[in-house]
């Protein structure tokens, strides 16, 4: 077989790609008009379920770049049974994540012993001002709506070990 010159071959690639794009559409999407659906596990933004948080500070301490800020105080709540002593509950005053610092490693979500933090694949929260990337607990709570169900695991996975 005679060797096809590189120039012809290159033009052939261009032509075939052009025809394929015309027929099947391109590989890229026009972002602001069309949105990409990230995988379920994608680490987009961290959501906070405030009711579960006991302000134990585990996430803030295990964060590699210390971007979680927690403040809390103890409050007395009415006893569960009548006549019992009043309970002490932890009240969360402040729970901020600075997304300008966050490196999306997921360690905080992993160490949380009370399932208060979740990953959401949402990614559209860029801000013109860097200070606005500090999400407070109200904003973090709003992300809870976007948290998807965990994906089904592979057939060979050890399902007993998972909670």
């Amino acid at each position: 077989m005679p060797k096809v010159p590189g120039l012809i071959k290159g033009l052939g690639v261009t032509l075939s790609t052009m025809l394929r794009t015309a027929k099947e559409g391109s590989h890229t999407i026009q972002y602001p008009h069309v949105k990409e659906a990230p995988p379920i596990r994608a680490r987009g933004v961290i959501a906070l379920h405030e009711g579960n948080c006991t302000s134990c500070m585990l996430c803030a301490r295990s964060c590699p770049d210390w971007c979680i800020f927690i403040e809390g105080h103890k409050e007395l709540a009415p006893p569960r049974r009548a006549g019992g002593a009043p309970r002490k509950v932890n009240k969360l005053d402040r729970f901020d994540i600075d997304y300008a610092l966050c490196m999306y490693c997921g360690i905080c979500v992993e160490v949380c012993p009370f399932d208060a933090l979740f990953w959401s694949p949402e990614y559209e929260y860029s801000e013109p001002k860097i200070a606005d990337l500090l999400h407070d607990k109200r904003k973090l709570g709003e992300w809870m709506e976007t948290v998807p169900e965990a994906p089904e695991l592979d057939a060979g996975a050890d399902k007993k070990g998972k909670k």
């Binding site: 990230p38 995988p39 379920i40 994608a42 992993e110 994906p151 089904e152 592979d154």
Partner: peptide, 27 residues
């Protein structure tokens, strides 16, 4: 990304194994 959650920075390896199992259909 669909297995680890991160496209560029998976952070999936843990001492003693992996963070999570593969999602169904990944193979």
């Amino acid at each position: 990304e669909s297995a680890t959650g991160g496209r560029f920075h998976p952070n999936f390896d843990r001492i003693g194994g992996l963070k999570d199992d593969l999602p169904a259909g990944w193979i």
